[in-house]
């Protein structure tokens, strides 16, 4: 049981370092997905919106971490 837990922790650790950062990224994907399904037809700016949101989450996270290190 401990071995399974250790493997699960390792696998989770591959994608999650900061829980808030990972949750915000997944939340943004979900938001864009819902937004895209409501649109009558695919529009290119939604893809740009996906990138901008992810980039903003990255910048916010590194700046927050840098502020905490001060």
């Amino acid at each position: 049981m401990n071995a399974i837990r250790a493997i699960a922790r390792e696998l989770l650790g591959l994608v999650v370092d900061d829980v808030g950062f990972a949750a915000a990224t997944l939340g943004w994907i979900a938001f864009v997905w819902v937004f895209a399904t409501m649109a009558p037809q695919p529009v290119p700016w939604m893809a740009i919106l996906l990138f901008c949101g992810v980039a903003a989450i990255l910048v916010e996270s590194v700046l927050r971490r840098s502020g905490a290190a001060r």
């Binding site: 994608v15 370092d17 950062f21 994907i29 590194v62």
Partner: peptide, 11 residues
Amino acid sequence: LLLLFGLRWLR
């Protein structure tokens, strides 16, 4: 998963 993994490395 790849996005989370890549962003983790980039961060």
